[in-house]
Write a protein that binds this DNA or RNA. Structure first.
Lengths: 193, 193
DNA sequence: ATTATCTATAGATCTATAGATAATGC
DNA sequence: ATTATCTATAGATCTATAGATAATGC
């Protein structure tokens, strides 16, 4: 097989499946639609990934891995004082979400399909995260981490409805920029910084 | 028709549909499963609600109405100082979520199926909310409202994964109690109260 | 020889309805 | 007469595979 061809079909299906599953969830997604998106025959999907179920597991694992990495963005290991590190870290995590707005919804919906290996990965990332931060912060860092995630992630889950009811004026980008600033502010105030 | 019978079937279907749709979403839900849950023949579902689509629209409207009401819980119209009102309101809203833990996920997923009338209802509730609060608070209250919702709602979306990775020690009830307190704290600190 | 691709179709659901029958209220 | 319920089935998808054919690498 030529590498080029292999990429074109096998990878195209993965890419298409990622989109379809994120938009419609497991039940809403159709293998025929995925094949169409990927520009390949429907049979190819089963040739490479056996079943819809298996293809989905693969996508869930890939996406969870991305999410697990994203959490670590909050830890900026520069030699900056705590306040600046938090400012940078929260903003970095928020920017990641701006680039991947569908991820949170996907995570929330497919939680019980996460493979045990991924659960361990996420677990470990959080542990590292909490340990590093707890050294410098006197309140229970687990709550702080949950606070940061709530503030950063929730806007993307509510984005469709927030836009629908016109809760904020101005465009979407401007709105997100203001929310990002507010999120940094609320966490710093929480810590009295 | 006897009222008793009417309740038994028509209402039972509505109840069962609410559960099934909340658990599995529109695509995951099966009209046959709903009928089974309700303890009626499958044909009855179509007899009363015509189609899966129409039954779903009905459920979405019902649930959205409940959510719209819940937001108003944050406003406690007792003659208390701002600080105490916020404490009570946030806690009340959080307790509502404890009793309806599946609602947030449902809202997030079915946003684009919300009927325009419901959009208007939600819009109006938020407007009232913001107007009342803005009188006493100097920062942009819209961000504060989003903050409160983020802090309160997000834990319920993350609950399955938080429990899966054992992020907090202790039981579920204890965990929720601590999160509730933290949520009040973070908002009060945000306002310097 | 092996890998990739296509056509055609089996088999399993699921939604929805038609048509018959029973229960209810006037 | 009207409302409620059941049985049976049409019709529409959707997943998955079998089997034939083309492309590729050794």
């Amino acid at each position: 097989m030529s590498n080029r061809e292999k990429y074109t079909s096998e990878e195209a299906i993965l890419e298409a499946a990622g989109q379809e599953f994120m938009e419609k969830g497991f039940y809403g997604a159709r293998t025929t639609s995925i094949a169409e998106r990927a520009g390949v025959t429907h049979a190819m999907l089963h040739y490479y990934y056996r079943s819809k179920e298996q293809l989905f597991e693969r996508i869930v694992s890939d996406k969870m891995s991305v999410i697990a990495d994203s959490v670590m963005m909050i830890l900026v290991d520069e030699n900056l004082p705590l306040k600046e590190r938090l400012e940078k870290g929260i903003a970095k995590h928020f920017d990641f979400l701006v680039s991947n707005p569908l991820l949170p919804c996907f995570l929330v919906n497919e939680v019980d399909r996460i493979h045990p290996i991924m659960v361990d990965l996420i677990k470990e990332r959080f542990a590292v995260m909490v340990n590093v931060m707890q050294k410098e912060i006197d309140i229970d860092v687990r709550h702080l981490v949950l606070d940061i995630l709530s503030q950063n992630v929730m806007p993307f889950l509510l984005l469709p409805i927030v836009e629908k009811i016109g809760f904020f004026d101005g465009g979407r980008d401007e709105m997100l920029e203001r929310i990002k600033e507010e999120n940094v502010t609320i966490i710093l105030k929480r810590l009295g910084l």
